[in-house]
Amino acid sequence: MNRILIVEDEIAIVELIQAGLAKAGYAYEYALDGAAAADLIEHREYDLILLDIMLPKLDGYELMEYIEPQRIPVIFLTARGATSDKVKGLRMGADDYIVKPFEVDELLARIETVLRRYNKSQTQIVLEDVTIDIEARSVVKDGAVIELTPKEFDLLLMLARNKNTALYRETLFERVWGEEFMGNTRTLDLHIQRLRKKLSWQDKIKTVYRIGYKLEVEP
């Protein structure tokens, strides 16, 4: 399990990120100011640090100078969106730069990418007899490759990442198709049906009444 340190002075944002990280299965800790973060970094090991720039006591840039020699991947998470700030952050050795306001899904995807770059992340999700390779975008069931369209793959990934959680139909559609839900769930329903058939998961991808769908697998 990857350990992530959140350095952010707003408790509301910290809790938001925590909720996202917990869902994605990461271990995490947080620091509300730069000095506390430096303490934590000194005493513990982390796979990745999410770093705000405007922090009390020690700011993000100062902290970055401290982190850099330890070669821990860093993602800046900040309200400063000017190109010069981004360039500065990336030049200092950050692996990515996310500007607030961000969405939790985007944050998780970027975390995954960075971890993968450092070979710290699993590139596969194994659900019972099905293996999903995120990088190769392939699905194997009982040793046989299952052919999926790109949308079907994205949909499966979304369900797999939120396994055993009921997902609203509208949101699911938005996340996979990237466009606003217009009230027609037919496309989504059709894709779900095809997924069930291709994976023989009729009993696992469940329809949740008045909500949407849920992938039920053994935890």
Binding site: A79, P101, V104, N162
Partner: peptide
């Protein structure tokens, strides 16, 4: 922008979580 983006991130983030899953 810092003052405005921080609450916005929280609002968008929490609202988004609430509408993804009950």
């Amino acid at each position: 922008s810092h003052e405005i983006k921080t609450p916005m991130t929280a609002i968008i983030g929490y609202a988004d979580m609430m509408r993804l899953t009950p």
